[in-house]
Each structure stands twice: as structure tokens, then as C-alpha cells.
Design a protein around this nucleic acid. Structure first.
Lengths: 248, 248
DNA sequence: ACGGTTATAATGTATATACATGTTTTCACG
DNA sequence: CGTGAAAACATGTATATACATTATAACCGT
């Protein structure tokens, strides 16, 4: 009620996180099913002996995380568990290999500067005849091929790339550290290995491969298109998901 | 500054969202590269003619979204674009089929109640001899097989499932609407079709298939394990990502 | 110089208050 | 008896203030 002024560290953590934790627990445990109305801001404030502002901030955070929906006059309600979204971490390949406790290496197999063909324009939104850099490189785990990377870099957006040899640094890492981007689109498929990729990766022709394609845009237009091809029987993507789980 | 008291709707949107937008623009455009220190709370407050609390809330939100890192005494800094996380939406299969403008149907091919074997316990954390429901069903788009679903349901956690026939409602949709969950783990692989799955899906043996496995936990333990097998040449997962992009 | 204490700068959390905004309920008037 | 204006309600946004926390900087005596 009267509210003993600010945090006196009575038990553990801040009031904010205590309230947040309690509400999340009620929601995630199913104790409060979707559609259930949670206490009003003023009631929460009374219950925890805090101001409405504090309760408001907690509820606002839950709403941003998608766990609840808020309606004026009506109150706040537990959301339906909407489409199952998973945070898919696509690691840096070097990190991926090292996570397997294997030595990492890569080999540049192709580096060509040319103008965009019609086929390239399917992958990246490019003007006709726009200059691009076409790279292919093979990532190795220990002695064995791990992943084949085929990449197009838009030289209109990233002119610095033309001066780079990509002999010492993989193009992915180089781009990440130099070029800002703000949107990426991924496409994940299972495809049979073509004769070419089978040779590069040292697998049987038509073997199942996991193919991940990524297109990236920056403020000044399309940046890069990349296709990673992994031997399917040796690789898996893993994604973990907790609703409302912010990146701590 | 004196700060003209609350929102007088001078231009557009709230002060909060204007500041947020401005900062995001600076960061995403690369204008402020990773490591760059952004203005202190008090400076932002002065600049926008608002109180420090307002600036603080904006910065706090950016920090939660992972765009910036904050250090006491030092200030707030643009984060390194860490591991590329993409929000991967795994749609409901029915929605997926309808998005292709095809008729949706499903057929239950197997429904068995049994106790967990050692192999089942690899998929789901189960006690030895725990009762489970073992389901297989085929999802159809138009007349053609679209996806094969193989599912284990933990009857210890979801006893209601035993009374359900799953003839009218697909097990995925049934579970979503009835059983609360709080953690899911996905595994995505490319695998060659086994003889069985090839027959079910009407594809060639050894054809590349996209396999998505999901394990789900609720408050009272493991809920379900499911494996979706899609003919690889006919299906792709698509994920779009914008850093700091909250679910509106 | 060195190492420890003190000051200071920046963020973190919380309060009380004020007014805006959008819904729902109520109630009075025709 | 309906309908439209007014009141009540719950959230949304913003302010000013206070004190806590913590990392860095400044100081200071030995």
C-alpha cells in the first residue's frame, strides 16, 4: 500500500523481475490459459506494494514479448500461442566447426568479377549488367569437406570487396565485420547433390544435402546472396525456443 | 530544457517511438558502427527536450532487443552483430498448405498406445516403460502427399490424449490448443527417404527430404516429439530477419 | 610511484503525479 | 424504449524526483 520507497532488497532481485517472473510462471505453466485476464495494473500494484508505473512496465514488457495482449478498459489477457516461431541461430561456420572440436580451414575455389546475368538476378535484386563478385569456397573440418559456400557480392553496394582477395579471410566473416545490414532472408531446403557439389564435398551424386540460402540487404541496397551446401547426413540445424525469451 | 509537458502530438507518433526510430536508423544504416558510443541518457533527454526517464526507457528497450549494450559509467554502445539469429516461423501445416492455395486434408495412418522403448527415449526424455501414444499421419495438399508426420505424445504429461481419436483434428492442432508448453527444440536435417517414407509420400527411394524434428516441454515435463518429413524438391523453409524486430 | 580511499559520472530502479486515449457502462431525455 | 451524451475505467505516455549501484577517475598519504 504505502510502498516502502524504492528497492530495499527484501528478498531477491528487483521488484520488476519478481513480478515479471511470477506472471511468466503463471502463463507458461498453463495456470493462466490463453484468454485469461490477468490482474489490472492497480491491483498488481496493490498486491506487490508498488506503484502503478512499475506494474505498467512489467505488463508492457510482457506485451512486447508477445505473451499477453492489452486492451484499454478491458485489461490484459494471455495471448494464444501463435505461430510457432523459433529463434534459429545460424552460426558462423568457423564457430560451427570449432564447436565440433575440429580444426577449421577454408579454400577459395573460385573468384570472378563479372556482370550480373539473368540467373543472378533471381538470387539478388540487381540491375541488369551490375558488377558482381562471384565466389566459391570450401570449408573444411579437419581434413574433410564440411560445407560448400557459393556467394555473390553486389559490388555496387560493397565496392571495397573488389580489392579483397579472400585468401586469408572467409568472405562471410569479412562481410560481417565491414558491411552493415538490416534485413536477411533465409531459405532452407533439402536437395540432391549435383555432380559438381558432390565432387567438391566428396560425397555421392544425388546424396541428400541441406541447402541454406541467405539474401542480405543493407541501407543502400542488396548486399550479398549466399548458398551453403552441407552433406545432409552429417549436419543438422538446431533451434531452441522459449516464448518471450529475450536474449539475455 | 523546460520540456513542454507530455505529448502534444507535435509531429507524428509518440516521443518514445520517434527517439527509438532515430536511434535504430543510425544503427541499422551503419552510420553508427558496432562499438560506437551513443549519446548519454541526459544528452538524449536534452536533445529531444524530454526527461531522462523517457530516454532511459528507449535505451532499455534497444538493449533488450540486443541492438546496444549498456555499461554503467561508460555509456551505451552499438553491439557487434552477433550470431545471425533468424526468426523462423514454422507454420501450422494446414496454414502452410492453404497458403499455396491448395485443399488441405490429412489421413491418420497409425495410432497405437504403447510403452516407451529405448529408441523412443532418444527422442523424448521419458521414464522406462512410460505410456506413450504413437501416431503417424499424412498431410495432403490437393490430392498429393505433402508431409509425413510421425509423433510421440507423452501420456504421463497429456493423459487427455488417450481419449482422442485424431480422426477429425490433426494432433498438432489438438495439442496446440490444449496443452501449454514453454520450451521447444527444433532440429532440421536433409535425409534420404527410407523405403517406408518414400512409399507414404509417393516419391523415389533415397530422394532428398527435409526433416524437421521438434521436441516440446511443458511445466510438467516432456510433451511431444514430432518429425515432419517433406519431399525436399517441393518444399522450403523461409525465414526473414531484422535485428531488433519485435513481433508487432 | 604505489595502493587504497574518495569523488564522480552514468545507468538502474522505483515513486508520485498528470493528463491523454480509447472502451464500456450508465443514465437521462425525447 | 431506444439512443446518444456523459461518466467511469483501464491503459498509454510523459514528467520530476529520489536513491541505489557500479565502474572509472581523481586524490593523497606513505
Amino acid at each position: 500500500m504505502s510502498g516502502e520507497r524504492h528497492a530495499s532488497a527484501e528478498k531477491e532481485g528487483t521488484l520488476h523481475s519478481r513480478i515479471l517472473g511470477d506472471l511468466e510462471r503463471h502463463i507458461l505453466s498453463g495456470d493462466w490459459p490463453p484468454g485469461h485476464r490477468l490482474p489490472f495494473e492497480v491491483d498488481l500494484a496493490t498486491q506487490y506494494g508498488c506503484s502503478r508505473m512499475t506494474a505498467n512496465k512489467v505488463l508492457t514488457q510482457l506485451a512486447r514479448a508477445g505473451l499477453i495482449e492489452r486492451r484499454k478498459k478491458s485489461g490484459s489477457f494471455v495471448s494464444q500461442p501463435v505461430g510457432q516461431a523459433a529463434v534459429l541461430e545460424i552460426h558462423d561456420i568457423e564457430a560451427e566447426v570449432r564447436a565440433l572440436k575440429l580444426a577449421y580451414a577454408f579454400r577459395l575455389e573460385k573468384r570472378a568479377r563479372r556482370v550480373a546475368s539473368a540467373k543472378d538476378r533471381l538470387h539478388l535484386e540487381l540491375a541488369e549488367g551490375a558488377p558482381i563478385l562471384d565466389l566459391t569456397c570450401l570449408h573444411l573440418a579437419g581434413e574433410r569437406p564440411f560445407c560448400l559456400e557459393q556467394r555473390l557480392i553486389n559490388l555496387a553496394t560493397v565496392p571495397e570487396a573488389e580489392a579483397e582477395t579472400f585468401l586469408d579471410m572467409a568472405p562471410g566473416a569479412w562481410l560481417i565485420s565491414r558491411v552493415p545490414w538490416n534485413t536477411a532472408e533465409h531459405r532452407i531446403q533439402a536437395l540432391a547433390a549435383t555432380a559438381e557439389t558432390a565432387t567438391s564435398l566428396g560425397i555421392a551424386r544425388n546424396a541428400a544435402c541441406l541447402v541454406i540460402e541467405r539474401r542480405t540487404w543493407g541501407a543502400s541496397g542488396p548486399v550479398t546472396f549466399v548458398r551453403f551446401t552441407y552433406p545432409g547426413d552429417r549436419h543438422a540445424l538446431v533451434a531452441r525456443f522459449q516464448p518471450g525469451g529475450e536474449g539475455a
